[in-house]
Nucleic acid binder design. Structure first.
Lengths: 220, 220
DNA sequence: CTCTGTGAACTGCTTCACAGCG
DNA sequence: CGCTGTGAAGCAGTTCACAGAG
């Protein structure tokens, strides 16, 4: 869910959501040394018609070859260039718990535009200890890091009870976007972009579709 | 992204995605002892008009009071009943790494219809050790657990390299839905519901909106 | 004949406009 | 009046239909 106030709707949001999946699929095909891929094949991974795939790809500016399809390498590189130009940003991560560590070690976050620069935690016991290839820093280092590296995004993987406080701290220091994993609604200023990641939302959708499919089997 | 083949589109997907957030917001209001909430207030958390909120709520069957709004307790309970009836499912989690552990400990996964029954891992060193309030089980116990507890969903938080193998294993045992966190596209039968969670997709969207907002400040 | 590329038609989600109730 | 509830209108995203390139 977004609170970015509809300022920048020039690219279809559905398209933006599909782009990273295209890249993932293309990376797999590249590993298998596939040379070409058709819009039909790509459409198989989504609930959309192959035409939609062609429209999406045309938005990145890449051109396919009639009869052959799209060059796997070419399209992959086109998307990477596109992501690099349009998406690349630096972030700090706050909260070196299980979820924070998982995110730090998550493959390919950087591939999709988000480079984590530093990791912070309020717990003095954790400060100084390593996580991934970072050392956990004290929040007192935040202002220096944010200014030195021109950080735009803060990733919040702190407990629910600490989230609003940390959010206020980082936005006061000029952070312009929050990626919140704590299960609560943060309040932020109008100029701050907020994305709430609610893992439970995914669970609810999956449960719903499974229930429906069971009912279907029992029904007429 | 889904591969559930459009069989069950009777409820708007956008609505299904908003429902868990409504519940989260209502839980916070309940803690603050707020008695009523308006559709306008709820709309503030999303990029939609307040009318849309009223349509969503009417789909759950709950009725508000003109002039007052919706009862926080009443609506919260209505959504819980709705989720309980329509969503509740049992799941096994495979892969007791950082992300798996984070999911197990994630607050309120059960609130949104997904109850984790058991946790498995291929690593013999981990088997038998505790994670959350579970003990990690050997995959050899899978058939027994799936049959005994009528498990419908498998959550995959295994490394990329193991994901397809584990996926094949569990679907062969009758699992009908996969929630995949490994960053690759799994191939499954037509009758299996597949949800791919791609954390990077969220990162890409956030990066895009931040870039846009920066350009806007510089532009005309 | 196959697969891309794109304007036109369509579908479904969102907003508008307004009736109804406290 | 304030806020819900809902049919009608509007719009974004998807699919259809078909031209074009190899």
């Amino acid at each position: 869910m977004y609170a970015e106030n509809k300022l920048f709707k020039n690219l279809p949001e559905q398209y933006l959501k599909r782009i990273p999946f295209y890249h993932q699929i293309l990376s797999e095909l590249a590993l298998k040394n596939e040379a070409y891929v058709s819009s039909r094949y790509l459409a198989g991974f989504f609930n959309v018609d192959e035409t939609q795939i062609r429209k999406d790809i045309s938005l990145t500016g890449y051109k396919g070859k009639p009869k052959y399809g799209y060059s796997v390498q070419g399209l992959k590189e086109a998307i990477e260039a596109y992501l690099g130009i349009n998406y690349h940003n630096t972030a700090v991560l706050f909260g070196a718990g299980k979820l924070g560590t998982a995110l730090i070690e998550y493959e390919g976050l950087a591939d999709y535009g988000l480079e984590i620069i530093a990791v912070f935690d309020n717990n003095p016991v954790k400060i100084g200890s390593p996580v991934g290839h970072f050392n956990i820093l004290s929040p007192s280092a935040l202002p220096r890091v944010i200014r030195s590296f021109d950080i735009g995004i803060a990733i919040l993987t702190v407990p629910k009870t600490a989230a609003q406080e940390v959010c206020d701290q980082v936005t006061a220091m000029g952070i312009k976007a929050i990626w919140n994993f704590a299960p609560l609604q943060l309040s932020v200023g109008m100029d701050v972009i907020l994305r709430n990641e609610n893992l439970a939302a995914g669970a609810a959708l999956l449960s719903y579709y499974l229930k429906k499919s069971n009912h279907r089997q029992e029904g007429p």
